[in-house]
């Protein structure tokens, strides 16, 4: 289902945060490869630096050592070829839902904000993306007027609107309740199935990782976090959350991941 060739590559990425007195060695020579069209989850104990790694891929943080490559070109800073979805959704509260997406469209090259004839065209495109996350009805609402799940759907629509080569999702459902999270996961799969874009997602939710991913990258706990294991999820799609419970492979994988992520002495049960 995906090309053999690596698409998003992180080579020997090391990150040391230095302040006046202290230095925190967050990541230590991390290697990561994501193939085109692949859905990869990055999972690890909290504080292991998985979000740092994602921010480095986004270009928001520069690595102390190592390099990031996307589609054969080096990543030197933030860019529209990578669509970021933030955990805190990060919608602008002074804009309506629609304006938030139009803003994303306006920022592109030649999209000088405010030109009216083009503005109308962009609004139409923005509405199309809102429809894809089933939020056409909320176009004129402000972010504080809609629920957390809806906000995150807007965040996803905004990332899709710039048509990036790869989606970077930073614990996109982490701040949501369990039911909303489930339905958003399903929605994300539905959207992803439509054109199978490349996705790198940070999560701390084992089930989420198994249900969504082709590949799960497990990190060790920080400091000096590394890649501990790369697991490929061979459960056929579509994956129904309830049906999964009866698949031995799912239970086995969940147990294996729990074993890696829980502290050694605590009991493991599935």
């Amino acid at each position: 289902m995906s090309d053999r060739k690596p698409y998003l590559v992180m080579k020997q990425v090391t990150k040391i945060f230095r302040s006046k007195r202290t230095a925190y060695h967050a990541l230590d020579s991390v290697d990561l490869e994501v193939r085109k069209g692949e859905f990869v989850s990055l999972i690890g104990p909290s504080g292991c630096g998985k979000s740092t790694l994602l921010n480095i891929a986004a270009g928001l943080i520069s690595p102390t050592e190592g390099s990031v490559w996307l589609d054969g070109k080096p990543v030197t800073g933030p860019g529209r070829d990578r669509g970021m979805v933030f955990q805190s959704h990060a919608l602008f509260p002074w804009m309506t839902v629609l304006e938030n997406i139009v803003f994303a469209l306006e920022c592109g090259k030649g999209g000088a904000a405010g030109r009216s004839e083009e503005g109308g065209w962009k609004e139409e495109v923005a509405r199309r993306y809102l429809e894809r996350v089933q939020l056409a009805h909320a176009a004129d609402k402000r972010p504080h007027e809609i629920s957390g799940g809806m906000k995150q759907r807007v965040g996803i629509a905004r990332a899709m609107a710039v048509q990036p080569k790869v989606f970077l999702l930073d614990e996109p459902f982490g701040a949501l309740d369990a039911l909303t999270r489930s339905s958003l996961q399903e929605e994300l799969v539905r959207i992803w199935e439509q054109d199978r874009r490349t996705v790198l997602m940070v999560t701390h939710d084992i089930e989420e990782a198994i249900v969504l991913s082709d590949t799960i990258v497990v990190m060790t706990s920080g400091p000096r976090a590394k890649v501990r294991e790369v697991l490929s999820v061979d459960i056929p799609r579509p994956r129904d959350k309830q049906a999964l419970l009866d698949i031995p492979e799912y239970r086995h994988m969940k147990k294996e991941l729990l074993g890696m992520l829980l502290p050694k002495d605590s009991a493991v049960s599935t």
């Binding site: 933030p78 860019g79 990060a90």
Partner: peptide, 12 residues
């Protein structure tokens, strides 16, 4: 985070 959004969208 607002500036991060702006940077990832390559806003001028």
């Amino acid at each position: 985070i607002y500036l991060d959004v702006s940077r990832t969208l390559e806003a001028g």
